Amino acid sequence: MRKKTTSTSYDAAKLAGVSPSTISRYLNHTSFVSDDKATKIKNAIKELGYKSNLQNNAKRNRRSMSISALAQHPDSPYTSQILKYKFTF
């Protein structure tokens, strides 16, 4: 039998005594999570050493959460304005 080396959000949910969807809402900041549950989740994540792996999530969801820019002349004033504007968000 293989030994489990990394913890998952399901492990954190079990340890915190909340549902996996509550963990997801806490990590993604998509909905309100009460202070009591947030504290339990934070402690469980810290105890397990849980870290979200964005690369694996990107492969699984087919979303990398990144934007690419392809420019033929990156030194042109027009292109540099667009790239400069991109980094001000």
Rank of each mutant, 00 (worst) to 15 (best):
K3V: 13
T5K: 15
T6V: 12
T6K: 14
T6P: 01
T6N: 10
S7H: 11
T8N: 06
T8K: 03
S9M: 14
S9K: 09
Y10F: 12
Y10E: 11
Y10A: 14
D11Y: 10
D11H: 12
D11V: 10
A12I: 02
A13Y: 03
A13I: 05
A13W: 03
K14F: 00
K14S: 07
L15F: 02
A16F: 02
A16L: 04
G17T: 04
G17D: 04
G17P: 03
S19K: 06
S19L: 07
S21E: 06
I23M: 05
S24T: 13
S24W: 08
R25W: 02
L27H: 02
L27Y: 01
N28L: 09
N28W: 04
H29F: 05
H29P: 00
H29M: 05
F32Y: 15
V33C: 04
V33D: 02
S34D: 13
S34H: 03
S34A: 13
D35Y: 03
D36I: 11
D36H: 10
K37I: 00
K37H: 09
K37V: 01
K40C: 03
I41M: 01
K42P: 01
K42Y: 05
K42E: 12
N43M: 08
N43Q: 12
I45S: 02
K46G: 06
E47W: 00
E47K: 15
E47D: 12
G49P: 06
G49E: 04
Y50G: 06
K51R: 14
K51I: 09
S52H: 12
N53F: 07
L54A: 15
Q55I: 15
N56P: 00
N57R: 15
N57S: 15
N57G: 11
N57I: 14
R60D: 01
N61C: 06
N61V: 08
R63Q: 12
S64V: 13
S64Y: 08
S64G: 07
M65V: 04
M65F: 08
S66M: 14
I67R: 00
I67F: 10
L70A: 11
L70Y: 12
L70Q: 12
L70G: 09
A71P: 00
A71F: 09
A71G: 07
Q72L: 14
Q72G: 06
H73V: 12
P74C: 06
P74F: 08
P74I: 15
D75F: 03
D75V: 08
D75R: 03
D75P: 01
S76C: 08
P77S: 11
Y78R: 13
S80D: 05
S80K: 15
S80R: 15
S80V: 13
Q81H: 09
I82S: 05
I82E: 00
L83A: 05
L83T: 04
K84R: 13
K84M: 09
K86R: 11
K86T: 10
F87A: 11
F87G: 09
T88E: 13
T88R: 11
F89G: 09
